[in-house]
Amino acid sequence: MGKSENELTWKEIEVGGIVTEPGNASQYKTGDWRSQKPTYDFSKCIKCGICQIFCPEGCINQNEEGYFVADLFYCKGCGICAHECPTFVITMKEEE
């Protein structure tokens, strides 16, 4: 992981401020913006993947059993997945 904006010196800035590490924003945690988190009742899940396609973060992945689960490092808790799930697997619950 490279240096953050608070650490880089002027000599370390890439020419013209270019960022040469593609997609390195994935180091940035957006999960702590969340006030609600998705919880799952997988007994209802038909593994259709609709939640995944409608996630603005692109942070929903299939786990080993094939269920679609949000990565809480990124999940901002918008609740679109819960709202769009055709079988009501997902419930948004207040973060503690």
């Binding site: 924003a25 994935s26 993947g49 396609i53 603005p56 992945n61 990565d71 990124y74 055709p86």
Partner: peptide, 27 residues
């Protein structure tokens, strides 16, 4: 209902972006 699973899983747009919560544009 299962058609979404045919869509590529490849994300050319990494998570960790700073769009507002529920941003339709990010989607």
């Amino acid at each position: 209902i299962y058609v979404p699973r045919l869509i590529t899983k490849k994300e050319n747009f990494a998570p960790g972006h700073r769009a507002c919560i529920g941003c339709g544009e990010a989607l």
